[in-house]
Simulated assay, not measured.
Amino acid sequence: MSAAEELLSGAYPAAGLALPHHNGRTEGVDTRTKRIVRQMHGRAGFALLRHRILLQ
């Protein structure tokens, strides 16, 4: 059985629907951080990027 077949076999999708845990907040933080990095690409160093991420 391949990895894709194993993922789609039913155990993981069923657990995803049944369990109350989700990664919504983590995904949101990651998306926001990537957006800030794209906006500041080539404009400033790490210190200013870190400052903007921590302030928002």
Rank of each mutant, 00 (worst) to 15 (best):
H22F: 10
I53C: 00
H51P: 00
P20M: 05
A14Y: 03
T31Q: 15
G16R: 08
A18C: 10
M1N: 03
A4V: 08
N23A: 14
E5S: 06
L48R: 14
R52L: 13
G24W: 06
Y12W: 02
E5T: 08
Y12H: 07
G16P: 00
G24S: 15
I36C: 06
G45M: 11
A11C: 04
L7N: 13
T31M: 11
G16W: 03
G24Q: 11
I53T: 01
E5M: 12
D30G: 05
H22I: 02
M40D: 03
I53F: 08
A15E: 10
R43A: 14
R32W: 03
A44C: 12
T33G: 00
S9L: 11
R32I: 06
T33N: 10
A18G: 07
A15Q: 08
A15P: 01
G28P: 00
R35Q: 06
F46C: 02
A14Q: 15
H51T: 12
H41C: 04
G16A: 05
L48C: 03
L19F: 04
G45Q: 13
V29E: 10
K34R: 15
A18R: 11
R43S: 10
G16Q: 04
H21G: 05
R35T: 07
V29M: 11
R35Y: 02
R50K: 09
L8Y: 10
P13R: 07
L17E: 06
S9F: 12
L49T: 12
R52V: 02
R50Q: 05
Y12D: 00
T31L: 13
L17K: 07
S2C: 09
Q39S: 04
A14M: 06
